[in-house]
Design a protein around this nucleic acid. Structure first.
Lengths: 168, 168
DNA sequence: GATATAAGTCAACATGGCTGACGCAAATTC
DNA sequence: GAATTTGCGTCAGCCATGTTGACTTATATC
């Protein structure tokens, strides 16, 4: 924890430090998604299904085009997973009230339960990482990740990356 | 930077804080890989090729089985990209000196140049994120990512996640 | 000499991206 | 009111990258 290699030196913009970030990001992302993938497989879903489910659960009433912007994928890719999720009863859509062309998406009870179940796995790992790193580290973790995100894409996720933790 | 939402509260293990981590990790990883993907496409390669190239460049003389452990993929998946890389002259392999069954992998000059070119893109984004977040944040970034990585997998990457930044 | 290990190959399949080409209903503009 | 734009959906096919399973060859080790 406090050993020399895990603390960024004042020369933290050197190549070695940058590569360390690249590598840790790759391994962490890969391992973090492994657990959820395994669980989802039992439901006949993949991570693409989970992403849609996740954000619909987070933002009930989200429109299809909102979700498309958030995920940055094509509507054909999204429709594939959305159809699966709806067919199996995890997601429903209703016609928009103001604009009847829109479809407002929301999760069913089963959908909420599945999202919870996957989140429980993510939660365990994330809480372990947060806990052993400490509060201050978490702030740094967020700050760097935020800097890695496309600026021109941040508009679409503003609600998540800004309002999210405004609790208390 | 110092606004209320970007600093973890003392209750940093609450669900909102965990979800923020999940979401930022997803968006950051996605956006971070976009630039490299685009460049690699011009060479007829994908990110799988890059991963192999990257680690071979980092650890010349790496054996195939070392690389397999590091990447956690099957040898069939690896052989596909390795064949492409070798066919196009970016990677070479030589018979192991001690153990002649092994193949010691290394990058050619072209391979080193390509890795450099991709890294330059990664570098720009990472340096921007590091720079705006600050040295202390980088330490936290590493600490949390490290905690997200499988413990039983860390043996395979020990050289990277520990020795890496021991410079100076 | 038997067995285990490192590497490679063939074949088939799943997932999740993509492009291109349409169709339809509702909203908006002229 | 007609024309155009927008939101959504769909069909069809392609590509990258992962998987499993079966088998071969060369070399090391017991």
């Amino acid at each position: 924890m406090a050993d020399a290699n895990s603390v960024a030196s004042p020369l933290f913009l050197r190549e070695a430090e940058l590569r360390r970030g690249v590598e840790l990001l790759y391994f962490a992302y890969r391992d973090f998604t492994k657990g959820p993938d395994k669980l989802l497989e039992q439901y006949g879903f993949g991570r693409a299904h989970h992403r849609a489910l996740y954000f619909i659960a987070r933002r009930p009433g989200l429109t299809v085009s909102d979700l498309l912007k958030l995920l940055s994928i094509t509507k054909q890719s999204l429709s594939r997973v959305l159809n699966d999720l709806q067919a199996k009863g995890y997601v429903t859509s209703e016609v928009g009230r103001e604009d009847k062309r829109q479809r407002l998406l929301s999760v069913t009870e089963a959908g909420a339960a599945l999202e919870r179940e996957v989140f429980e796995i993510q939660r365990e790992r994330m809480i372990q990482a947060y806990g052993q790193a400490g509060q201050q580290a978490v702030t740094g973790f967020w700050a760097v990740l935020l800097g890695l995100i496309d600026q021109d894409q941040q508009a679409a996720l503003d609600q998540f990356i800004r309002e999210n933790t405004s609790g208390r």
